[in-house]
Write a protein that binds this DNA or RNA. Structure first.
Lengths: 243, 243
DNA sequence: ACCTGAACACCGTTCAAGT
DNA sequence: ACCTGAACACCGTTCAAGT
């Protein structure tokens, strides 16, 4: 009856399982970035040989599939704790319900800064990604939107539905450190010639909010602005449909 | 006076220049995808040794920087042909002017399906990317929006400003072929359990438009829907500011 | 100055061999 | 059955050597 009680510490030597491989991969990516996640480094982390990984993972691609799915599973868990549950949400509250779910998803992704970039490279249908989006579709439908409008809505949200948006000018890069460099002013001066309007804009915006220099803007504020812009637009279209 | 008239065919042996290297790299990526763009394959394309590339390009990263900038330069050229020019655009037409520029940018990117994915990995400030965005900022400002609102607007547009948006469910992958597979129905059936609402939505949407099966939707239509949703929202906020 | 070839330090992965 | 080590076919890049 007494199954061997191996300790489940980090170096637990219990038989390797796909779940343990994936969990270890997420931890490694969190700590050192996806760039450091190689079959060899992951194996080293697990105290194993690189080739042994192929017994639990079909390929590197499969590993990345599993790893992103695990992150989205974490999102699912976080979102499951939101009350009221989707079924108990008053239909008219669909917008707030959606907003809360999406911002909760975002808060999870902030713990895995490398995840969005990997998520964007996945082409398959991760089970948890699908389930997450299904709940959003359900909420929108419950709010009275036609399936046609819901469909457009999901496309319009795009990756924002999962809580991230592509920042095209992000010197920290996807998952990098957010520290603005010291030569920001030099950069601004160099840009003044070719981008006078942007420079003027940043000068004024930075002036109003001395906290944030240059374009290193408040990601959270900007994300919510864009999200609300879309949600408000959808609400307007929904009301037009309802008439 | 007679400079050697080397033919400028594909295999032109004229002295190698950075411009020729980058142009060749874009052509290679267009033909075989970014995955096929390696220092070695690019060198072969140019009838040269791999190491010779480093005389015109600092590194692979620098090559990708240059290559994306070249694509955006192509966008710039296409957008420059739009009339009326930004300076002659009636201020009240800012929304249409923006829309036309963005859709023109998109039409260029459709010729380089690999470009969006690479663009997203660039952290630096490509000169042409900055210039392109500067024109958008100018148009928005000319339309009477405050710099603060313009700033939010640019963040809300994100990569949409350059004509692309991240599709999270795109089985063709970034820059892949758009052909839906034959086992779509099998996939739908398998998904029915975990994503009943999505399946119901797709069934109805597909029913209305038998042309497009499953989620392999009309990218152009969806892009324009999302873009208009944002632009209309911005217009509304601009009007509120103007009061 | 520009281009080359061999070599280095990495990848993901195949394969035959161990237990 | 699970794990291993050597090996293969790739990468980007360094370096000393050619012209």
């Amino acid at each position: 009856m007494s199954t061997p009680q191996t300790s489940t510490s980090q170096t637990a030597r219990s038989t390797l399982t796909r779940a343990r491989v994936l969990a270890s991969a997420v931890a490694l990516a969190d700590r050192e970035g996806v760039g450091a996640l190689t079959m060899r480094s992951l194996a080293r982390e697990l105290g194993i040989e690189a080739m042994s990984l192929y017994h639990h993972v079909a390929s590197k691609e499969d590993l990345l599939d599993g790893v992103t799915d695990l992150v989205v599973q974490e999102i699912q868990a976080a979102v499951a704790g939101i009350e009221p549950a989707p079924e108990d949400t008053p239909p008219s509250d669909w917008k707030h319900a959606l907003r809360r779910r999406i911002l909760t998803a975002r808060s999870v992704l902030l713990r895995h800064p490398w995840a969005p970039a990997v998520l964007e490279t996945r082409t398959g249908f991760s089970p948890h990604v699908v389930r997450y989006h299904d709940a959003l579709v359900a909420l929108l439908r419950r709010g009275g939107l036609s399936y046609d409008l819901v469909h457009h809505a999901m496309h319009a949200l795009g990756s924002r539905a999962l809580g991230f948006s592509q920042e095209l000018f992000d010197p920290s890069g996807p998952g990098g450190d957010p520290a603005p460099t010291a030569d920001d002013e030099a950069l601004l001066a160099r840009m003044a010639d070719e981008a006078p309007h942007i420079v003027a804009m940043l000068a004024e915006v930075a002036h109003e909010d001395p906290e944030s220099t240059l374009g290193w803007c408040d990601d959270q504020t900007e994300f919510e602005f864009g999200l609300d812009l879309i949600l408000d637009g959808l609400e307007r279209l929904a009301q037009r449909e309802a008439r």
